[in-house]
Amino acid sequence: MTSERAPRIAVGPARDARFEQAVVGGGGVPCGFEDAPDALIWTTGPDGFPETLPPSVRWVQLPSAGVEYWLSQGIVRDHPHVTWTSAAGAYSATVAEHALMLLLAGVRALPAHLAATSWAPETLAPSVGTLRGATVGIIGAGGVGRALVPMLATLGAHTLAVTRSGRPVPGAVETFPVERIDEIWPLADHFVISAIATTDVERLVGAAELAAMKPTAWVINVARGDLVDTDALVAALRSGAIAGAALDVTDPEPLPDGHPLWTIPNAVVTPHDSNPAPLRIPAYLEHVTENVTRFASGLAPSPVIDPSAGY
């Protein structure tokens, strides 16, 4: 945008005072979808997204960090002259905090403590560990992983990172390109899966990877359920090949009643709520204001979705 006028920005699928206030905070003017908006702030999932956009729309802001469904359905492809941005990075600190909570719960034997019905510290002591001096492998050190690195450092833990490019991640002891991911499994003490959700990546952790880990390792998944082979994970948990797993995402999802992961004592499952609505909406509102500010100033909103990369 130039400085000639403030951009007209619609909020969909329905007008929402909270998001219109965020638009105003960024220097935009809220308007209806029928009023030739310059941009569209979308607040829900892909269902119900309009098949056609007004020709005036030059930018669309999506509410999710992962955009694989938007891409697989052709929604982004069908509007090639529009700049599309995701909410990647907006929720990083919230999800990283949840991942740290799960990791600490595992390392400090919280599941066993919660299951206890009598005072028997001597039986629990051997399973209690610490993150002080431990090495944590972060598989997919994007926004969430980078937010997690300093949290772990505060507790005295070291990090090894895996990214697509292998470019150094600030604070990590070493960063591996994804082509060298097999090197990390025997090196780290614990693992956090926080890889960006793309359609071309699945089953990063299977039977071979679990077998290569230390028997004291905890595996945390806050990314996508199918990045971990569920059957292989259940077998590893039951055999003691690894110490435990804590999952905010599962395959299948929702995890059905009666699934072994609900009752295996060294498994922790949270129902995909690492980024719950009470925290997600304020973070998204802040992201909207920041991007509207950029758009109104003639700068490109961020991060721009690259269909060829899948995010």
Rank of each mutant, 00 (worst) to 15 (best):
A17E: 12
D38R: 02
G32N: 04
S3Q: 12
I41L: 14
E20K: 08
R18E: 13
S72K: 13
P80D: 02
I9F: 11
E4T: 14
V67D: 00
Q73G: 09
E20W: 04
D47R: 15
P30K: 03
E68D: 15
P13S: 07
L62S: 00
P7L: 06
G48K: 07
Q73C: 13
I41W: 02
V23I: 15
D16W: 06
G32W: 04
P7S: 07
P7Q: 09
D16R: 11
A87R: 00
T85L: 00
F19A: 12
G12T: 12
F19T: 14
L62I: 09
V11M: 11
P7Y: 05
I9P: 03
P55Y: 01
V82W: 13
R58G: 15
G48F: 06
R8M: 01
G25E: 13
H81K: 10
P30V: 05
G27V: 05
D38T: 01
Q61D: 05
F33S: 08
G32T: 11
Y69K: 11
P50F: 09
L53D: 09
S86Y: 04
F33C: 02
G12K: 14
L40Q: 07
V60C: 01
Y69P: 01
T85G: 00
S64V: 06
E51Q: 15
V82L: 06
A65I: 06
G74D: 11
D47K: 13
P80I: 02
R77D: 15
S72Q: 14
P7F: 00
D47Y: 08
W84M: 01
S64A: 13
G12M: 09
V23T: 02
F19G: 04
D38I: 01
P37T: 11
Q61Y: 01
T83W: 03
E34P: 00
V76I: 14
P37Q: 10
S64H: 10
D16Y: 07
G27D: 06
V29F: 03
P63A: 10
W42K: 10
A39P: 09
G45Y: 10
T83A: 06
V67H: 08
P7M: 09
Q21D: 14
S3T: 14
L62R: 07
A36F: 08
L71T: 04
S64L: 11
G12H: 11
D78K: 14
S3P: 04
F33H: 07
Y69H: 07
R18V: 15
S56Q: 08
R15V: 07
P37C: 11
A10I: 01
R58M: 03
G27T: 05
V67F: 06
A10S: 07
W84A: 03
S86W: 02
T44L: 07
R5T: 10
G48T: 03
P55L: 05
S64N: 12
G25A: 15
F19C: 10
Q73E: 12
